[in-house]
Design a binder for these strands. Sequence first.
DNA 1: TGTACATCAGTGAACGCGCGTTCACTGATGTAC
DNA 2: TGTACATCAGTGAACGCGCGTTCACTGATGTAC
Lengths: 212, 212
Amino acid sequence: MTSRAGARKRDTYRHGDLRNALIRAGLELVRDGGPDAVVLREATRRVGVVPNAAYRHFADRNALLRAIRQAALAQLAAAMETELAALPPADDPVESARARIRALATSYLRFAQAEPGLFRAAFSTTDMADTENESAGGPGGLTAFQLLGAALDDLVETGALPPERRHGAEYFVWSAVHGLAALLIDGPLRGLLPVQAHEAGQRLMDSIERGL
Amino acid sequence: MTSRAGARKRDTYRHGDLRNALIRAGLELVRDGGPDAVVLREATRRVGVVPNAAYRHFADRNALLRAIRQAALAQLAAAMETELAALPPADDPVESARARIRALATSYLRFAQAEPGLFRAAFSTTDMADTENESAGGPGGLTAFQLLGAALDDLVETGALPPERRHGAEYFVWSAVHGLAALLIDGPLRGLLPVQAHEAGQRLMDSIERGL
DNA sequence: TGTACATCAGTGAACGCGCGTTCACTGATGTAC
DNA sequence: TGTACATCAGTGAACGCGCGTTCACTGATGTAC
């Protein structure tokens, strides 16, 4: 009775890692409920701390939300890095670069569908004046956008992509993938079965390769 | 002093068109503030009616929100129809079909940037179990998705698009355009200057045509 | 054309709720001597 | 190695707020006779 559901009892007076614990709790809230579900009091409740304790680590609710969003972006980047790392070594450098782009797109779409709440939070920006310069990258330190850029650079290097088309190419690829993800999560494609969604993803990637 | 700012005084006891008035007020709220800014009490305040009067026309806040979302989608479709109608008559049917697709894409992007709140609301779906079958079309009765489909059909008819690529083509086009819109509004492309955004849009449409 | 009446759109008052945030505090921890 | 003290992470209590929603009501409107 002394501890609430989900709140671990502390043995020390100090929590020791409250800032990160609050972010983790916030990620849970976001996972099922999206960014609106980030309730400062609920996060502190889950961590087992009094509400105002959060103010030792965050200026206000918005600061917490920003940190959570950052963490969600980092998780997305991490998922993409993992997918890249799992790619079998290819002989053909052109095919290798293409495979990497497909892998990035695939993991992006998969992440969005597996974790719609996190995905939505990562790209939600109710508040203006977002700093955005902090690290939202994966373990390798690269953001989703930068990972994509690197793969496109390789495509140019191998000669598979004409240099004059390189500029802005990541906007195209990213837009297409991001758009499908958004439409599948929130938009009119919401009702699609997993199989259909997968097929749409495959077709999309074909079109992207053609469009590059 | 008898009427609050923004609330027109009624001369009749009955409002006469409260349902639509609430939707219009809701659209205003959504316009600057997105879907979260839809506050039932505020909508009634703006209309000049007591809060619970809304319950004569909507089951609850969510029903109001759904109606507003529907109206936002209709506005988007209307903007696209207008753009189509403004298109100069073309001689070449292939060029005509292509021009229509570009026009649809352009107006979609323009709408998103001019009315980010409405755009965000149109595609927000916090609540599951959305009926979605109601009319979200423009004056012509077609939704944004259907307008795009019709243009693609024409592209096939004129022979410019191989029939075997028709299937799922609107997913590709829509995803690309929707994705850019989303990234420009909420995502990492938020900071882009209007000129840059426009250029990104042009490049995107080139890539789309190539990808089709 | 006039009157009685049912309908139902909008009123008035109130509710419980959980939120974000502020205040003065307490007491464990780490540091200086 | 031991003691005094400053620091500051977490506490406890409270606040004002505006929200969505419910209740019993009132009185203008449209309809039946």
